[in-house]
Design a protein around this nucleic acid. Structure first.
Ligand SMILES: [Zn+2]
Length: 136
DNA sequence: CGTCAAGGCCAG
DNA sequence: CTGGCCTTGACG
């Protein structure tokens, strides 16, 4: 089948995504980046942006590795999905509110706040990492 | 059995 | 470090 590439677009760089990754629309690049950042915990960012960088293109996204990570969480990607395919956007156990996924509902804000909370934790961890990652 | 998503490894 | 392709696993 000539699978039409027009359907999924990366919410981070607007690149063509072949599928949804970690609960968020992302291209392989962003997915791999996210996974390596979370799963591996490696990568030296060494960038202290306030998160006001405008990541909209395939070029601006690579300028700020942290901003990309920031946007990744905002588009719906969650670190909990890394190393676990059974953690994406699914009806989380415990929430039996009729029908409806965790998203697109009243708890949408909850998800957004959760992502933002992760950002604070991530930024803090990144800050310590970049400070300690200083060579000599 | 088929499809979708994640993980791993490779190349630039 | 970034982007991509391939492979494997799980779920439907
Ligand atoms: Zn992307």
């Amino acid at each position: 089948m000539e699978s039409p590439p027009s359907l999924l677009y990366c919410g981070v760089c607007s690149d063509t995504a072949d599928a949804v990754h970690f609960g968020g629309l992302s291209c392989r690049a962003c997915a791999a980046f996210f996974r390596r950042k979370v799963a591996g915990g490696k990568m030296s960012i060494g960038r202290r942006c306030n998160g006001n960088c405008k990541l909209d293109t395939v070029v601006s996204r690579r300028l700020c590795p942290f901003c990309r990570y920031d946007k990744c969480l905002r588009i719906g990607m969650k670190t909990t999905a890394v190393l676990s395919r059974l953690a994406t956007v699914k009806t989380e156990p415990g929430e039996g509110t009729s029908s409806g996924s965790g998203w697109a509902m009243g708890n949408l804000l909850e998800q957004m706040k959760e992502a933002h909370r992760n950002l604070e934790n991530a930024r803090r961890g990144e800050f310590m990492n970049e400070v300690r990652a200083l060579p000599v």
